[in-house]
Every structure is written in C-alpha cells, then in structure tokens.
Amino acid sequence: MCFELTDFQITLNNEALFEPFSLHIKAGQIGAITGPSGSGKSTILSDILGVLPAIFSRSGNIRLNEKDITGLPTGQRHVGIFFQDDLLFPHLNVFENLVFGIPAKLSKKEKAQKISSALSHAGLQGFEKRDIATLSGGQRARISLLRTLLSEPKLILLDEPFSKLDEELRDQFRSWVFKQIQLQDIPAVLVTHDARDIPESAVKIELEVSYA
C-alpha cells in the first residue's frame, strides 16, 4: 500500500496556492502537511477526496496503490477522512455509527464482533447501544476514528484532527490515533498548523505560499 502526490499544485484563478511538491508515503507511514492558514492545506484534502470545488484546478497526479484516482467519484476512492469535528451521525447509536462503513460482504455476526473488539481496543467496551449525545468529547473522537478505520480505507486523511481537544486529552489521543493507523497498516495524510501534532517518523511537507 502506498500513496503518492507528484508535482502536485492547486491553482485558483490561474494563481497557484503553493509551490508544487511531491509526497510519497508507504503503508503505516504518515505524511504531514503544514503551512500557514490560507495556504490550501484543506483544499488538498478535498482534492484527494474528490470534492474539490470547480473554481480550483489541479496539476500533478494523485496515485493510490499505483493507481491514478483523480477520475473516480468520492465513493470509489476508498479514502477515509477524519475531521476536527467528530461528525458522528446524531440519529444513530454507537453501534449503528460504526457499522455504517463496514463492508457489506461481512455477516451480521462478523460485523458485531469487529465492532465489539474495536470498542474494547479503544477502552469503550460495551458502548454499542449508547446515544452519541451522551458521550464525552474524547469518547466521540475515538469512536469517530474507529468508524473511519472500520470502513477499511486504503488511505486515511486527518484534517486538524486534534485541534478541538483539550491539552491533556490531546497527547493521549494523538498517540492512540497513530498507533491505530500503524495497526491498520495504511498510509495517512495529516494536515495541521500545530507542529506538536506531527510524529517524529512522519514525512513532512511544509507548503510554501507562492505569491504571484
């Protein structure tokens, strides 16, 4: 499993948002993109997801496992995303949220087993029937990441994943997230403005804002 961006650049009205760059990450590895706000970090993620607004245009390639994915609709890219807001579905309970992304080919029983073991890994054993609204911020963040991982993405995008958590929770959650990604053995792209969020082993890209 690998993910690469080559000579990647996004322009708006013929003005580049940043200098072109390339990024190559392998399974279990994290590519960290930093840069000042307005430099287009989140726009890069939108493009990888396939929801780039048409006013932008891109040059360069996006390849996941050697395959160009730029022509694929969002649903077929097998890219998972984790936002700063947990975006758990408020009308579903924990189990229903988690089962939402699990591939349909699995049996009911297998799905239940997967969820139960994932929850206990996350220290949330027996939370299946809980209402999302009754959980703490940290619990919700963990379930949200689990939900993304359970959908078995081939790449995971992390959009300012820790910025809304308080200091104490943040350190704890950060190392838990990276561990999960390693366990899952997929590449990950992290976007953040905070250097503390970037693990040592990450491939780092700092966007250079291009001024026309």
Binding site: L49, V51, P73, T74, G75, Q76, R77, H78, V79, G80, I81, F83, D85, L87, F89, P90, H91, F100, G101, R147, T148, S151, P153
Partner: peptide, 29 residues
C-alpha cells in the same frame, strides 16, 4: 445541513444513495 456529514458518509460506505437515505434524509426527517 452540514454537508460534511454527507462527505463523511460517502467516504465510509462508498454509496451515495445509502449516504443520502441513511444519513441526510434521516437527520432532516
């Protein structure tokens, strides 16, 4: 409606129809 719910749903289940009926439609029921 926070459209990111729909984006999240599509990335999770790879199916725009399911993401509409099971998420957006129900939240807006």
């Amino acid at each position: 409606f926070d459209q990111r719910y729909s984006v999240a749903a599509v990335t999770l289940c790879s199916c725009p129809a399911k993401s509409f009926w099971k998420v957006k439609f129900q939240i807006l029921l």
